[in-house]
């Protein structure tokens, strides 16, 4: 029997630890599909973050390193400078990239390191129990914003891509989502473009993927996808933020 739409070769045949409906599973699969299609599985080095995706190396069948919380772009910088022929990408969540790792991501971008960054933004700290992240939307209830996030006390959602678009070292920034099949395929295209940017030595790129966290949003997986479509994209508009490739 012919099979279509099968599991990508570089994804291990293993059940993930992610909650039902989590966007990490989709992002992992898309990354593996892109790597398989580009045929660079043997030359890829991924840097895993701290967060829900901390065990990503259990699911990816290519070289993966683990970095301290938020320091993923710094580790990737080292790997890429020592092994410039490898495809080096970091995989980070919003707590990792936009909170503790803000300095690393901005300076890696400003230096114009030839890296790809996959930034999975679900607006909450998943692994530690649903605390507020800098990217949490106003009015969202979390474990550490029990009366919902208010701008007067907790500030505003942090938009990393908009913040970084004026840096001269940054080549390509795009925000995508996974709330519908169309957006999933669009995300795959953006990841492929980011990797191609790197392989062509054209510099630093980030793909921000808006992802659901059904568990800590307190919604079921289908409602979570609808929340991205109706609420999250209002704050974080989908599209190319910068493209100077």
């Amino acid at each position: 029997m012919a099979k279509r739409f099968t599991r990508p070769e570089s994804m291990k045949d293993k059940a993930t630890h992610y909650c039902p409906g989590c966007g990490h599973g989709l992002a992992h699969r898309l990354l593996c599909e892109v790597i398989d299609e580009m045929g660079c599985r043997e030359t890829t080095v991924a840097i895993a973050p701290v967060g829900c995706a901390v065990l990503a190396y259990d699911y990816w069948d290519f070289d993966t390193m683990e970095a301290p919380h938020g320091r993923t772009p710094a580790v990737a910088t080292g790997v890429k400078r020592v092994l410039p022929d490898r495809l080096v990408f970091t995989y980070q969540g919003d707590g990792d990239l936009a909170a503790i790792g803000t300095a690393e991501i901005i300076h890696a971008g400003n230096r114009g390191e030839n890296l790809s960054v996959i930034f999975v933004n679900n607006g909450v700290y998943g692994m530690t129990g649903g605390q507020m992240a800098p990217t949490t939307l106003l009015g969202q209830r979390t474990a550490t914003s029990q009366f919902t996030r208010r701008s007067a006390t907790e500030g505003f959602p942090l938009k990393i891509l908009e913040m970084m678009k004026d840096l001269k070292g940054v080549s390509y920034l795009e925000r995508t989502s996974v709330h519908s099949p169309k957006e999933v395929l669009n995300t795959k295209r953006a990841i492929a473009k980011s990797f191609k940017t790197q392989l062509d030595n054209k510099g630093f790129s980030i793909v921000e993927i808006l992802s659901p966290c059904p568990t800590y949003w307190g919604l079921d997986p289908v409602e979570s996808m609808k929340r991205i479509e109706t609420e999250v994209v209002q704050e974080y508009p989908i599209g190319v933020i910068k493209d100077s490739v």
Binding site: M1, A2, K3, R4, F5, T16, Y18, G25, R29, V184
Partner: peptide, 13 residues
């Protein structure tokens, strides 16, 4: 395309 867990494959001609 939407399955987060690679639980579905399309099998057939």
């Amino acid at each position: 395309i939407m399955c987060p867990d690679c639980a579905i494959e399309i099998v057939g001609e």
